[in-house]
């Protein structure tokens, strides 16, 4: 396999560089998820409120993020925030903000769906014990909603991980961007390297996302049973 090109992966610091790029993708995904899920849980609870105004506002928020492709979202934050608000934060921070808001919109819908699908009688028997609205949320509705929403939340996480592949488009040094640089640097000496570099990245995404999807599938089967 001397000339198959696989050696590109291990030449010099290439492998370490790829792992470094992977780390960038991972922390952006994790941070966006943490912020997005926290915000989304809050928005989801608000979306079950009786106020029409609150409902409409959060619905529009959700639909905006549903309609705009994530690539476009990244560009909106990357080009418009710095210019309109005079912010000069690094692209990775812009990406976290964009992803976190997107996650919060998607998650708010998941939380809302789960909350309204907790059976009405569960809510009533909580009330019958004298629980107030807040206690009802904390002890009865949220824990039950959590179980219902877990598979969808894991699926959302796998989408966020896949979406980090778009980071290269706003010049974040993620795993794909590093990969592309390595491919270009070795194009003359090792034209087959491209196969291995992109193959490895393909595989890296797969080994992160596949177990998560399997887990989500198992959980949702159990919820149905």
């Amino acid at each position: 396999m001397g000339h198959s090109g696989i050696n590109v992966l291990f030449e010099g610091r290439n492998f370490t560089r790829l792992l470094g790029g992977l780390w960038t993708s991972v922390w952006i995904a994790v941070l966006s998820l943490i912020i997005g899920l926290a915000l989304g849980a809050l928005f989801g609870v608000l979306r079950t409120s009786k106020s029409r105004l609150v409902k409409v506002i959060f619905r529009i928020y959700l639909e905006f993020f549903r309609i705009v492709p994530t690539v476009v979202l990244l560009f909106l934050f990357y080009y418009i925030l710095p210019r309109q608000f005079n912010l000069s934060w690094p692209a990775s921070v812009m990406a976290v903000i964009a992803f976190a808001l997107w996650v919060s919109a998607e998650f708010s819908d998941i939380v809302r769906g789960a909350l309204i699908s907790v059976p009405k009688i569960q809510r009533e028997s909580g009330l019958a014990l004298g629980l107030n609205k807040w206690q009802l949320f904390i002890y009865v509705l949220l824990p039950q909603a959590f179980q219902l929403e877990l598979p969808a939340t894991i699926n959302l996480a796998t989408r966020v991980i896949k979406t980090t592949s778009l980071l290269m488009m706003i010049s974040v040094m993620d795993v794909i961007n590093v990969g592309q640089q390595i491919v270009e640097a070795n194009n003359q000496t090792n034209p087959n390297g491209v196969f291995w570099v992109y193959g490895l990245i393909f595989f890296l995404y797969f080994i992160v996302d596949y177990p998560l999807s399997l887990w989500a599938k198992r959980l949702s089967k159990r919820n149905e049973a």
């Binding site: 592949s165 596949y210 999807s213």
Partner: peptide
């Protein structure tokens, strides 16, 4: 199905566009 669902479209496209010509 599992391969396609658990990898990003972007890397799938890179593979088709940049890596396939090699073979």
């Amino acid at each position: 199905v599992e391969l396609a669902r658990n990898t990003p479209l972007l890397i799938q496209l890179f593979f088709l566009y940049y890596a396939f010509p090699v073979i």
